[in-house]
Design a binder for these strands. Structure first.
Lengths: 206, 206
DNA sequence: GTCTATAACGCGATAGAC
DNA sequence: GTCTATCGCGTTATAGAC
């Protein structure tokens, strides 16, 4: 289906990838919101306005990274192990995958799950990618919920919020305190197992 | 000890308070990082450079709010109920107080516990206020830890991280989903009790 | 002295002409 | 791709008004 690219088109695509790569490096080094088009242009060897040949605005760069972030995140969640394991295994695998993604892609993670850039609102297309993934996660949880392994007085929403809160809190703690340590090492390795146990217990309290 | 203020000094102090109040309103309306000196000046009826009579820089405004945030937060934590209650009561009270502070002062909360402003680093003095409060919280936890109500295989640090992660995660969830609902209402009211139960259980697992 | 204004600098994103 | 230009931002210097 894909037509072969002309030489010019290929160079253009390469340039776009270079811009995105440099943008990520800068975001990781100086913070997501501190990204500067001038710095990107200088590193490529271009004038700032020339960047507008490739992206309509700075937010368009954020937007593309936001979109790709959810695609990559989705791939990882789809490929993670223990999706058919016990509840405990499933939870641990899910939390670990989420945390690993955040630890390995802190720039994308911030863009996707926090809102560090004043005024940045994802485009409709990127938002659709994002919502599709979040809905998939919700469906997977609904599947577990229906599977009969869960028996609690909590509602579906409450049980899920409990899990999300824990996952989010542990991730933030890890990023704030051990940003360079892989998930599973450092202060928070043991806590994933512990957290999963606590959630399983809460979900099976009756 | 305090000398009576001259009329001028009083006006000056009032102006400082006005600047801080407007800054907070703007931060709550548009996001912490989107604060603009021009907007503050315009609302006061001043030119932007005149603000520099009162604050050395924009970061100095952030810094003062950061410092005051920790002072107010400390006051609330000192006055919260159930500090001598059961472990469960104590945890619930602590989480609820933390969440209520965040819900009622989302601007200060972000400034204090997230880092939404690129390049903003609290001054030494403000940092000292902040560290003093965090150390106090740590001491209080150590006191509970020594009290004998806790019996777990977790280390002190791990047990505490577990609590902090949960508290942080629930707070973020609340701010993201029900920013206008008081703590205790909305999706997350029941979850505070539930979370405290889970933590108590994890701390008394042996 | 205390406050405010004006002018100007440097840097950022961005738009348009070539 | 470039260059030029605009606009908004934080910031500084300086000079006048109370």
């Amino acid at each position: 289906m894909d037509k072969p690219l002309t030489r010019r088109q290929q160079i253009r695509l390469d340039t776009i990838e270079t811009i995105l790569r440099i943008a990520r490096e800068e975001m990781q080094a100086n913070g997501v919101a501190a990204l500067s088009l001038g710095v990107i242009a200088k590193r490529i060897g271009m004038r700032t306005p020339s960047l507008y040949t490739y992206f309509d605005s700075k937010h368009a760069i954020y937007d593309e990274l936001f979109r790709r972030g959810f695609l990559e995140f989705g791939r990882r969640m789809d490929e993670r192990p223990y999706q058919d394991g016990t509840l405990q295994e499933n939870l641990e695998s899910s939390m670990a995958t989420y945390m690993r993604f955040a630890q390995e892609n802190p720039d994308l993670y911030q863009l996707m799950f926090q809102r560090p850039v004043p005024g940045f609102v994802p485009s409709e297309e990127s938002m659709a990618v994002s919502l599709a993934r979040l809905n998939m996660a919700r469906s997977q949880f609904a599947y577990i919920w229906e599977s009969g392994e869960i028996d609690t007085e909590l509602t579906f929403e409450e049980a899920r919020d409990l899990y999300i809160a824990f996952q989010h809190g542990l991730t933030e703690l890890h990023l704030a305190n051990n940003p360079d340590l892989p998930v599973g090492q450092g202060r928070f390795g043991k806590l994933i197992t512990q957290a999963a146990q606590m959630i399983v217990a809460a979900w099976q309290k009756k």
